[in-house]
Design a protein around this nucleic acid. Sequence first.
DNA 1: AATGAATGAGGCTTCATTCAT
DNA 2: CATGAATGAAGCCTCATTCAT
Lengths: 212, 212, 212, 212
Amino acid sequence: MSDTSAASTNAHHLTTPNTVVSTSKAAARIRVAAAEAFAENGYGGTTTRDIAARLGLSPAAMYPHYKSKEELLFAISYEGHLKCVELLTEADEPGAAPTARLVSVVSAFTSWQATHHVRGMVVQYELTALSPEHYREILTLRREISRIIERIIREGAQDGSFVVPDVAGVNLAINSLCVDVCRWFPGGGFTDPDAVADLYAELALRLVGATR
Amino acid sequence: MSDTSAASTNAHHLTTPNTVVSTSKAAARIRVAAAEAFAENGYGGTTTRDIAARLGLSPAAMYPHYKSKEELLFAISYEGHLKCVELLTEADEPGAAPTARLVSVVSAFTSWQATHHVRGMVVQYELTALSPEHYREILTLRREISRIIERIIREGAQDGSFVVPDVAGVNLAINSLCVDVCRWFPGGGFTDPDAVADLYAELALRLVGATR
Amino acid sequence: MSDTSAASTNAHHLTTPNTVVSTSKAAARIRVAAAEAFAENGYGGTTTRDIAARLGLSPAAMYPHYKSKEELLFAISYEGHLKCVELLTEADEPGAAPTARLVSVVSAFTSWQATHHVRGMVVQYELTALSPEHYREILTLRREISRIIERIIREGAQDGSFVVPDVAGVNLAINSLCVDVCRWFPGGGFTDPDAVADLYAELALRLVGATR
Amino acid sequence: MSDTSAASTNAHHLTTPNTVVSTSKAAARIRVAAAEAFAENGYGGTTTRDIAARLGLSPAAMYPHYKSKEELLFAISYEGHLKCVELLTEADEPGAAPTARLVSVVSAFTSWQATHHVRGMVVQYELTALSPEHYREILTLRREISRIIERIIREGAQDGSFVVPDVAGVNLAINSLCVDVCRWFPGGGFTDPDAVADLYAELALRLVGATR
DNA sequence: AATGAATGAGGCTTCATTCAT
DNA sequence: CATGAATGAAGCCTCATTCAT
């Protein structure tokens, strides 16, 4: 519990979006257009022209808002990761039972990935294009996400709510599951984020061998 | 059984690698070097120079073997996908119990993804760089992979071996799990492909609600 | 007369240079430099570097103005051909006697070819480098030029002003004569376009067997 | 006459084809294929692959026969020019009347250009691609051709057979006429080299103002 | 804030040519 | 002689980015 509060403090410490992600209207529109382009063609397959064209602007128009294409990618990635951290932090209720917590967190994560699957593609699969410094900064956030879930699994395993063969392995699996949603959603018959969220919550419970 | 033979016929029908992937020694070495480069930096982040340099060759050296960088990507992707189809087709034992089949198939898939995680990265995550025609061709193979697993889940659900809330959804989940291995392996404490394979087979059984 | 007005209408119909040849100052300078380079070394023997270097620009500088080297060639070729069509159309005086008309037209054509012999080389001898579509478009203009002269020969032959063994053949010959000027001018003792124009007008009259 | 014999001596001096143009069967076939390619696409627009492909050979196959692509062009150009010199030299009958000589020479030249219009294109219009040394060597032959015709015109003008405003100018014109045949033949209704030859002989007489 | 023109760097590819076979 | 593989040079073009406007 002290552990948890520390974590949330930690997360709060990370929460300084203003210094990283511009809040201006135009900058936000550019981020949206860029995310779409990156999602469709990959960072390397996207030109500044592509992005600008989606907004009816000239390629030079993004430079008052972002120092470079990579900074733009970082802004999208950072904002997305931060949102996830906040989301999962909020979804997790440290006092509640592991089962309820897992359901809440996995539902939230899955739902976000489905709803924001375009941004998700960039957030989850365009990490290699980041500069080393930015990559490191993003890794910090990703670790935080992983820890939130792992903590629940570990605590559930300790108090007997869950029966897991390998905490790290199962954590990896649940993460894979949630992360990968953005890659196929909508698809496989799913068009409603909540439906996927419900299914995946159930599947997460199965993965951890939740008793009942 | 007729079902299975149909599947294997189907897979066999797809199996015409010679017409797609050059079997020459030099061409194969280029594929390996390119796969490493693509895995590390992404297709868009890799130059033909990068690839050639890994082999101590000039940038033009790949052109007698591949018409373009994209053709090279396709060759790697095609070969990898085809290998997976063959692997899973072989691993599946149509006559056996769904539980055994699922374990066999998931083990095989996971193990391959872990062992060939470099190639796996290209196979799984560099699809958007393919030309539309090549992308379509690869999709055919991917669907085949998905079907192999889905068939087992469906049959297990029908004969009561499995209890699944949603065949398509669970299939998606198991696929996500296996596919995603290449992205983090080695990692999370795992360095032995077989260890991951065993864990994931167990997790797959949990996902399908295998009765014992 | 109706014939003539039809022709001029026709020529006017072709006269839409704005849609084809950029009117910007920079684009025009590039055309001049490129024409010189093409004339000296041929299209295939000219690099985008060559052209840019003549203007003290970087090789990429032409791309905001022309989509490709071939488009640049086309612009030069189109502008030159159009100019010729206009020139000859203007020089031809439908009401006048065939002799006077032939002198006027051949003089004008010859003078242009001599004066603009650099551009002429590109206009006349770099047709094979054009794309099929562009080639076709240029052919339309060339046919118009040929027709202007042929019409005069035919009318002169009909009214007895000329005595020609073969209208098409003589037309071909007069065209060859005029076109070829750009290849040797200045040379053969000629440095004054008007001198060549006068000579060639006289020679054209001889070719058509003008009765005095 | 002494003039003529000097000329023929001169021409003979130039006649050392063996040292320049290989007489081997294979080399000749390559020249033919190359001439076709050059004629169609220009020297710069032709690749060694293009040429080899026309013979079903690999691009490397021409190198035992020609040191370079430019040497191949030179061989074609030299052989063609030499042939012309020989042809015109033969066609010219020093003792005959200027009128008869002009008819004979122009007929021969025109006929050759029409018959060998493919080679003609290379001979006449691919001069800029030659190396400076080769260009100079070819120029010698071209001057010889020009002189053969000019001599006839001058002699005709002197003995009153012709009435020309300007010997050099008329010579230029007759040369233009003959040279340019290869560019349009077959065309303009002409498919028979002899028909063009007859017409052009008549036109040449007109150009020189032949009395009768 | 936004643009059109320009650029330096570099990318993919082609090409003429060589060489071992 | 002919070839397939390989290469160095270079070509065309694109791209992220800058800058004057």
